[in-house]
Amino acid sequence: MNATIKQQLSSPGGWLSFLIKYNTIFIFILLVIFSACISDVFFTSVNLSNLLKQVSGIGIISVGMLIVILTGGIDLSVGSMVALLAVTFAILVNLVILPLAILGTIAIGFALGSVAGYLVAYQKMAPFIATLALMTIARGLGFIYSNGSPIIFETKGGLFMSNFANNSLLGIPNIALVFFIIVIGAAIMLKYNVFGRLIIALGSNEEAARLSGIKVNKYKFLVYAISGALAATAAIIVASRTNLGSPNMGVSWELDAIAAVVIGGASLSGGKGTVVNTLMGVLILGLISNILNLLNVPSYPQQVVKGAIIVFAVLLQRFESK
């Protein structure tokens, strides 16, 4: 990595191609500088820690979205899964001891993701359709199990979780730490583990992967299951932040996650994308909301700006491939 960077910088016009290649990091830094200039409040620890807390939930599901997209698939169910699993966690935390509630929620997330994985890998269903179906089913189940209203944490375990979710370690919010650990873990798995190699190979040429003796179906199945487990982790975090599980949580989060992955330069046809760039995508989206909030821009224009940024980021990547 370092060698390639040096090589690029030393070649004529190197800076430009460097900026184009690492454009997400570049956009991120520009946005930070811009935000710091435009608002006095931006660089306060309260604001920065708020920003991190806001992006952690979507950030975690974006990591799951990335590994699904790397195989050439898509997971539309994660937003609704967050709602269903937040409700599930709230119910469990009021019923059983905390470790069991956490493990149970993650296991249920993994199981729900497995349903999508089974449909895609073994029933050859289009990922868009399989996860679209799961999306409405999960949202519906969330409303059924909660009777349509939020379920509030009532036990000591619940109290512990909401303390955990709202506190910091060395100035970094605990939930952001969870997010960063997942990012680092995923980055290591993708770069240094066979798992990452194989899902990228499978996304770049499924037929060649099959002919190389790779268990294509197993890995396709696994990425959806992992995405489900990560949705469960995100659900636990967002529920703990507000001390409740609500079926209205995570609305359209799947789209934000896809946007983050795409801003991070991943290809929707699979085989291309990295965790670090997805992290940048998540932070960029979070930063935009944050700065627009600081500037008191109402939420409707915010959506317009967000959309424009997505277009801009993807256009920049076109330069990269040229």
Binding site: R197, I200, N205, A208, L211
Partner: peptide, 24 residues
Amino acid sequence: SEDRKEEGVFLPMSIKKNISVTNF
């Protein structure tokens, strides 16, 4: 395979990753 591009190699991936894919 006779169809190198569709079934034989992973075009966007490096030579290293192509060769290692059977060999983990």
